[in-house]
């Protein structure tokens, strides 16, 4: 009897496909999230209205469900692969190689940068999405859009980023997100079979640039709030 998709997807390569596809979904998400955050530079009104339109769009539930499923699959598969890989390489060598035969810091630390990012993500939702609710009011009246009161998420962001401890924690986490993206983005191309001498340098540069742009874009907000 011929083997089905499940047999393929549960193999080591199949699980790598899961890692790559679910990772890429989040790669796209962090970019859009980062660009949305930059609206803070366009002013309080733009920021709050964007946030309002985003969360009142009914499609948001579909998007949120997809993101939860993909990050769940990513974390579960990643941890299960790591546990197996720890068993298949029980001992490392007495000497650490000095040359290119060693692996990059980013690729070696995926499990840790990923785990801390997941913890950060949960706390991040608690702080902002499910955090303190401020009503957005202008000239003494609550702002209402499409019949729903607008939340002053801008106020909460400013309050959080005025605390040096929070900015430090946020900064460390975003550097780790960048580190995770540096290996993850380029690596997902390889996992999905895209590797050609014509494109390899471009793919590597793209992964590098993506990680830096996303991390710096996110960091711009707290730095702006904290310094100015």
């Amino acid at each position: 009897m011929s083997q089905g998709i499940l047999k393929y997807m549960s193999s080591s390569i199949g699980r790598k496909y899961i890692m790559a596809v679910s990772g890429l979904v989040w790669v796209l998400f962090v970019l859009t999230h980062m660009i949305g955050n930059l609206l803070i530079f366009a002013g309080k009104d733009a920021y709050n209205v964007y946030s309002h339109k985003l969360i009142t769009n009914p499609l948001i539930y579909l998007a949120e469900a997809a993101l939860v499923i993909f990050i769940g699959a990513h974390a579960f598969t990643g941890i299960s692969l790591k546990l197996r890989n720890n068993r298949t390489k029980p001992t490392l060598y007495a000497v650490t190689p000095k040359s290119a035969k060693g692996a990059s810091l980013s690729s070696k630390s995926m499990i840790w940068s990923g785990t801390i990012t997941l913890v950060f993500l949960i706390l991040h939702l608690v702080t902002f999405k499910y955090g303190q609710y401020y009503a957005y009011s202008k000239d003494g009246a609550d702002v209402v859009l499409d019949g729903i009161k607008v939340r002053d998420i801008h106020q909460l962001v400013i309050e959080c980023f005025e605390k040096p401890g929070y900015v430090a924690w946020y900064g460390i986490c975003l550097v780790l997100v960048g580190l995770h993206l540096y290996h993850g983005v380029a690596s997902s191309f390889q996992t999905l079979g895209l590797n050609h001498p014509k494109f390899n340098n471009a793919i590597k540069m793209f992964g590098w640039a993506y990680a830096i742009v996303v991390a710096l874009g996110f960091l711009a907000v707290p730095l702006y709030v904290f310094i100015f």
Partner: peptide, 8 residues
């Protein structure tokens, strides 16, 4: 183990 594209 499985490949994590480290390149070693």
């Amino acid at each position: 183990g499985s490949c994590t594209n480290m390149g070693s």
